[in-house]
Amino acid sequence: MSATPKLTVSYAPFWHNGSRISKKSCNIFMASLLAVVPGVYQYGVPALGVVALSVGSAMMWEIIMNILTRRPISIGDGNAAVIGMIFAMLLPATAPWWIVVIGTCIAIVIGKHIYGGIGGNPFNPVMLAIAILMLSWGKILDFNAALASYAFNFNAVYPLTLMKSFGASAVGGISLKDLLMGRQIGGIGATCGIGLIAGGIYLMLRGYIRWEIALSFLAGVGVTALCFNKVNPVYAGPGIHLLTGYTLVGAFYLITEDSSSPVNFIPMMIYGAGAGILTVLIRNIGAHVDGVVFAILIANLINPLVDKIRPKTIGEVITHA
């Protein structure tokens, strides 16, 4: 052989199972379409506009932050697009353009990049954005007012508002099947129960979200709602709580966000169930119509603490220096 070939020299392991962040983002994005497409179908072109603007502006903020912080352009990993998509899922179809742009700005800039970018954020960026918007421009996120101009062939009152103001009897007429099929008003991607569940099951099976968190969250909501309902039937039963508001989108797309959730088994259970219980407590007793947003933010807050409960490392040498 004439010239000696230049070999690649690097560290072990030399194999990799092929997973990467962009694949995960791509899968979450695709799964969310299962819920977003029915939403767009129901609300028409304005909904499509919100989704497109949200995804687009989220990616734009990501690039701007990459340039400002002088780091490599990272929209390739798809995380910004996913944040934009999930943010859009929570908005009413009539959300004005500036709300969308401000919301994604909060999510990407304050929710993600201030903490050092992907993997560093202690709070779910989308939750942070929605919470700030709810506190600042509550009216726009009030689904009854926002969607008043639509004529639906079903009861067009946000079920959670009904429940809050008039008790369980007011939502008694809503069949769970209707809720599953998306015959309720709400966020663009938050109403079609069947689409959300299908996407969630897909993501859990593929391992792109941690099933422990999603299921314990749903269990937390269901069990707490059932307890309330049994003690005093004025509170709605678990079915209504599970299928209305942000519960399903929360279980599969919000609370499972990687960076702000625990990774060990017992902490995942505590974290998920805790957020579920809080959700129903806020809905039934607290001041807000939907408890998911604040429940998840509070769960994010305790995440670093609960994740300290970890299995004992085998062979760990504890030295007291």
Binding site: I21, V263, T313
Partner: peptide
Amino acid sequence: TIPEQPDTPCINCGECIRVCPVKVP
């Protein structure tokens, strides 16, 4: 066939925790 190496920090996905034989955090 050499896997490429991007430069991203830990995203806290938890895959490593599932496989570690001695349960290192």
